[in-house]
Structures are given as structure tokens and as C-alpha cells.
Design a binder for these strands. Structure first.
Lengths: 127, 127
DNA sequence: CTATCGATTAACCAAGTGGTTAATTGAAGG
DNA sequence: CCTTCAATTAACCACTTGGTTAATCGATAG
């Protein structure tokens, strides 16, 4: 995941870590300092700092300096695009559509060796 | 992202790549062979094969052997959990709640040096 | 001024990622 | 039998990631 990646990839990559997701969950309850955010984890302070930098550069948190504390707060906007992207696949998981398509195809396989309906794969030439 | 990661992390990590997301988008239109999936990308066949392996071990696609072709189809179920996780943050991005909270806090900062409402951060002892 | 505290940066490491080319497997066809 | 084709595996590469410890920075307290 280079820094040249698109925003959606950066968002998903930032979310692909349980520590970072837990930090976001904590921040959903309200702002917190870096020390407070790191307290639940058996992890060094620099490790937390790195996680926060990933979240910040993904635009998922904002940091503000208050004396010698850094106050972190959630910026959930990037999640909106990720949510929207997933939304397009809702019909595929709802009603077990995946399994239905698979069932129909598997059922018809013995009768006719061609893909089930709704699967417009270009026919492979198999003379 | 080690193979010991939790399912949600594996799902998000699999989605954190534009090539893999494009493959999933293509599969949403119907099943396809590995060759068909790789055709739009200026990328070697082994590279596509690796992406497909990531998607398969994340449970996002299934492969089936048909003669010398591997038919890939979408398995969207893991996206459901990812979608649900993001759903919990909807109120934070809807109505620009983030900016609202920030505005309220920033407005009251000069009057009273304490966190804005809805931010139950443990008070740092600053005698 | 000095010590301390919250947090970050620096330097390093093991492991993973995303890509390559070359070799391999397995099925189809002349 | 031999070739060809779809796809994967093997071996390798540059780069990233997630973690560490040690050093640094800035602000506060004494």
C-alpha cells in the first residue's frame, strides 16, 4: 500500500488492523489523548503513535495539541465512501444470493454444460 | 496481515487494493475465468493469481475447476460484516457530526477550558 | 536550571505484499 | 506422442508494515 494509493485503498488498509479499529471504536465515544488510547493495549507508545499516524494520514482521525497532550478525535467521513462501496454488494449477501446462484448452476450442470443464468461469461471456444 | 488475523482484518485487507476491488466488481456482473479477470490489467498472470488467492482466502471468491479453466465467482458474505462494522459510524459522518462537534468545542474553548459535551475524556490532572 | 512527563522520531528488525520471470502442472487437440 | 493453452507454483526482488528500544522534543512542575 504505497502512499500513491487511492483514497479507498488507504481507508480499507487503515481499517485492516484490529488495534486501529479498536482505537476508532474508542474515539467514537469521544475524544482522547494518545496515552488514553494506548492504555488498553500491551504495546509500546511508539507503536500506538504509528497506528495513529496511519489513521491520521487516512483522514480517519484528527490530532490537536493541548499543552503536552495530543487530543485525538474521530473523523469518520472516509468511512462513508468505504460503506458506499460495500453497499453495492448488498444484494449479493442478502438472501444468500451467492448460494442460490451456485445451487441453480450446480443443479443444471448435468443437464446442460453451460453457465447458469445471470452469468454472462464470454463463451470459451471448446469445439 | 498475518494469517492469524481476525476475519474482519482479512476482509478489509483484501479490499485495500484497487486491482482486487476491480476484480470483485467484475465478478458482481457474473462468473469469469482467471484469464478473463486478468485481461483488463497490465499485469502478469501470476500477479492476478496471487490477487485471486488473497480474495479466495478471505472468502470473497470461490474457484471451481472446469476442464483447464478456473471459474471464479463472487462470495460477498464477508463484506456483510465489514459493512456492519462501518454502519456503526454512520451517525459520525452523516450531518457532518464530526465538524459540528469540532465547532461546538472550538466555540466554547475561550470561555471554559474543558472538553466539549459528548467527550467524556478522563480529566488530565493539571493542578 | 533541572527533572519529569506525554508524545514523537530514529534506527533497526522480522515478516508480509505486490510485482517480476522461469518452470511446472493438467487437460485438449492434432 | 507432442504441442498448446490456462493457470499455478517457485524463486526472487524492492518496498511496506508492525513492532521494538533508545534518543529527542516541548511543556510543566519543582
Amino acid at each position: 500500500m504505497a502512499n500513491t494509493d487511492d483514497p479507498l485503498s488507504i481507508t480499507f488498509a487503515a481499517l485492516a488492523d484490529p488495534t486501529r479499529r479498536a482505537i476508532l471504536t474508542r474515539l467514537a465515544r469521544g475524544e482522547a489523548t494518545v496515552g488514553e488510547l494506548g492504555e488498553p493495549f500491551e504495546m509500546s507508545a511508539p507503536a500506538i503513535s504509528k497506528h495513529l499516524r496511519v489513521l491520521e494520514s487516512a483522514g480517519l482521525i484528527a490530532r490537536e495539541v493541548d499543552a503536552r497532550w495530543r487530543i485525538c478525535r474521530l473523523r469518520a467521513e472516509p468511512m462513508h465512501d468505504a460503506h458506499d462501496w460495500l453497499e453495492a454488494y448488498r444484494r449479493h449477501w442478502e438472501g444468500n444470493l451467492d448460494r442460490l446462484v451456485e445451487f441453480v448452476e450446480r443443479t443444471h450442470r448435468a443437464e446442460a454444460k453451460k453457465p447458469a443464468s445471470g452469468a454472462p461469461r464470454a463463451p470459451r471456444k471448446k469445439p
